[in-house]
Write a protein that binds this DNA or RNA. Sequence first.
RNA 1: AGGCACGUAGCUCAGUGGGAGAGCACCACCUUGACACGGUGGGGGUCCGGGGUUCAAAUCCCCGCGUGCCUACCA
Length: 878
Amino acid sequence: MLDREYDPKDIEQKWYKLWLEKKYFHADGNDDAKPPYSIVIPPPNVTGVLHMGHALNNTLQDIMIRYKRMDGFNALWMPGTDHAGIATQNVVEKDLAAKGLSRHDLGREAFIEEVWRWKEKHGDLIINQLKRLGASCDWDRIRFTMDEGLSNAVRRVFVTLYNEGLIYRSDYIVNWCPRCHSALSDLEVEHEEEEGFLWHIRYPLAEGNGEVVVATTRPETMLGDTCVAVNPKDERYAGLIGKQVVLPIINRSVPIVADPFVDMEFGTGAVKVTPAHDLNDYEMSLRHNLEIIVIMDESGVMNENAGPYKGMDRFECRKRLEQDLQEQGYLIDKTPYKVPVGKCYRCKTTIEPYLSKQWFVRAKPLAEEAIKAVKEGKTRIIPKQWEKTYYEWMYNIRDWCVSRQIWWGHRIPAWYCENCGEIIVSEENPTACPKCKSDNLRQETDVLDTWFSSGLWPFSTMGWPDETKELQKFYPTNVLITGFDILFFWVARMMMMGIKFMHAVPFHDVYLHALVRDEQGQKMSKSKGNIVDPIVEMDKYGADAFRFALSAFAAMGRDVRISDKRIQGYRFFINKIWNAGKFVMSNIEGFDPRSVSVDAGSLSLADAWILTELNKAIRATRSALEEYRFNDAADILYQFTWHTFCDWYIELSKPLLNTEAAPYTKWTLCHVFRSILELLHPMIPFVTEEVWQNLPGSPEESIVITRYPREDSELDFPEKALKMGYIIDIISGVRSIRGETNIPPSTQLDIVLRMKSKEIEAAVSEYGFFVRDLARVKSIGLIPEGAPRPKHCALAVTGEAEVYVPLEGVIDIDKEKDRLDKQIAKLEKELEGKRKKLSNKDFLQKANPEVVEEQVKIKDELELKLGKLLKAHELLEG
RNA sequence: AGGCACGUAGCUCAGUGGGAGAGCACCACCUUGACACGGUGGGGGUCCGGGGUUCAAAUCCCCGCGUGCCUACCA
C-alpha cells in the first residue's frame, strides 16, 4: 500500500541501488538474441559539476535508452568523462595557487600526478550526480579519455594521420591565450565586439618631407611592423611604392609595398603590417618576403624588440605608446570604433594572434568524407535545419591546430633528434634516431587538444584499435544526443575520425537539442546569478518531476527555458500519478487480474473506451519517441494520464465498481494504469517503479526490464468508444449549463434528452448512471425526435443529442438567455464565414471536392446547432 | 558582412494552406470517501507590419521592423 503522499528522496535511492545490483543497465556483448541499440554519452568534464545542460542532455539519452531497453533491444549506454585539458589544468593550478604554488614549482611529472590525484578525489562527483538523475548508463564500462586504452587509440590515430601526411608541424599565426599559455583552435575563440578606437598614425618618409598615415586598432603592434601596404591601384600612393617610411619612436625604416589585399576604402588606404601578430599580415609577409618580428612573449608582455616598452603588458604598452605618439606629434586622430576581439573560451582573456610552431590536422580530406556521409543519408542530422550549418562549416573548414602548450593531456608522440634534427613520430617510445642512430632524443612537450581524443570517443570507448565484440555489435551507434553548440567541436570531428578509422559513420542519427536558458531566455552564468542548479531542483521536487519538465520543454523552439515554477507544476503531476495509484490499489485489493479474461462482450462502455484510448496513446507516444519528439511524448502522456484516465475514466469506474461488471473494470483499471506507468517509465523512472511494484500481477521483477507497451488490436473497440464519447458529451453539456448558470453542485438536476438514434438512446438507457453520477443528475427523461421540446429549459447541443435542463425554480432564466445569446453570436459569426465561402463560385470550382464536402458538413452542423439554440431561446420566453 | 532561427492569449510555446490551441496565470463555484500538489465551468487573441501567390494564408513567397544565435583573415 502506498503512503499518503509521494516522497521522492528515499524511493529514488532505493530503486537506483537495486537497479545497479541487478545489473539491469549492463549490456551484454555476447547477447546475440536481442538487436543492439547503442548510445555513447557526451563525456562531461571530469572536473565538472552537473549543470542544466547535462541534465537535459542525459535525461533525453536516458529516455531513449530506457525505451529501447524495454522494447527488447540489447541497449548500451556507454558512459565516461573527458580529461578536459585546459579546464582541468586551470582548476588544479588554482588549487595549487591557494597554497602559494605554481605548476612550475612542482615540475611536469609531479604536476600531472597532482592532477590524477585530483581526478581520483573529485572525478566521480559528476558521475554520482548523473546517477542521482537516474541515468541508466552501463557503469561497468565507464571510460575516461586518459585511460590507457583510449590513450593508445589517440597514439594510433596521431601516428597514422602523420604518416599519411594528414598531420604536419608548421610555423603559423595561431590563437594564443596569454593566460593559459597555449595555442587554441579557431573554434576555441569566442568573437565579441568591443568598444575600441581607430588610431591614425603618421609614418614619415625616410627621405624627403612626405608621410604616410596608417589606421589601426592596435597601435602597440606598430613596434613589430615590417612594412606599410597600399593597394596597387590606389593613385594616392602610386608614387610612394618602394620607398621607405620610418616607424616613430623606434626609428626603424620599413618599405611601402603594394598588395591587392588592401582595401582602399578603409581608413587611409594604407595598412601597417605586423607579420608576427596578425594572420593577414603574416600571409602578406610571405608574399613580399618580409622580415618577421615578434614583439611579445607568451604572456603578452612586450619583449626586447619593443625597445623602451620592454617588460610592459600589451595593454599597458598601448597606453604608453599612445601617449608618446601624442607628445611627439605622430598621433593624428583617435576615433571610437567597434573592434572585433577574440577571447579565450576558457578564461575570456583577449587572444593574441601569435606566430609559433604548432601541429595541425589537414582537415579538408577528412571533411569531404564527412560531408558525403550526411549527403548520402548515412547519418541524419535532426532537426534537419542543422544540416546546412554542418555543410557550411565543413566546406569552409580550415586546418585544425591540435597542439596545446599545457601539461595535462595526451602528449604528442613525437621526438626530435638533437643530433640531426630528425622528427620521429611513433606509437612506441623510440630509443634511437632511425636516421643518425643517436640516442639524444627529446620528446615533444606539447599535448593534444582534448577534442582530438573526444573525436575518437564512439570507437575508442569500445576498445579500438583492438577488434572487440563491442565494436562489432555496437558500432556504429544508433544516435548521438547532444547540444547544437558542439556540432563543430565534437560531432563534426567524430564524423571525420569515425569514417577515417572505422570506415563507417559513428552514428546513424544525430539529435541536436536546445540550450537551457533561464526564465527570461538568458544564458545562465555565474556572474548573472541566474543559475538553476539541477541538484537543488531535484532536492526540492524529486528527479522525476525535474526530468519530466526537461522532456516537456525539450523541443520548444531553440531554447529550453526552465523555471522553478514549471518544475513544480510537474511535481504536481507526479503526485497525481501517485494518487491515481492509491485509488487503483485500494479498489483492486485482493483482486487477481489473471482471473479475468476480457472480450468485447464483457466490457462496459467506459472500459472499452479507455482501452481504445490507451491504444491511441501508445501509438502516439511510440512515434513521438522514435522521432525524438520528447515534448510531444511528454504532452501526450500528461494529457492521457491526467485528463483521459484520471478525470474521466477513474470517475466513470466508480459507479462501475458497484456493479457485477466490477471484475472487468478492475482488470481495466489495473491494465491501463500499469500501461501508463510503463509508458512513462523512460521519462520518470522512479515513481513509476515504486507504484508499479505495488500493482498486482506485474510480469517482471522490475519495470526497468518489462516490455514497453504495444498496441493491442484485441483491445480496440471503436464502436463502444464512440458511444462512450456521446455520453461524455452529454455529461459535459450538463456540467456546462450548471457552471454557466451557477447551479450549485449540491442541486440534483432533472434532465431530458432527445437523441438522434435509437441505438444511442439504448446506450444512454443502459449507462444512464454515468450521467447521473458524473453530472449530478436525479432523473433522465428521454423524448423521441420530433416530440415537442420541454419549456423553460437550458439547452446543450452535442453531436448526437439535445440536452435539456429544466430551469424553472432552479435558477434565473435571464442568465440562461444571456448564455445562449453568447453562444448564438459566436455561431452566427462562424456561419457567416462558411456561407460566404460556400457561395463563392471559385471555391466550389477550384477547391478539392473533399474539402468542399467537409465545409458543407461543417456548415450544416453549425446551422443545425444554431437552429436548436434559437429555438431554445424562444422556449425560455415561455 | 554572410548564414540560421524566432515574433500566435498576461507568460512560455504548439499548430505550418481550408472550423484559432495547450500548460501556467486569471475569474466563478466546489472541503464529493485517490488527489486542494485537487475538481467543475469560464473569460481572454488586428496569429509583428506591409505587399504578393491562391477560390482560400497564422500557415507559402517578397519587403520592412524587432529579437536571438552561429560563422568570418574587415586593418
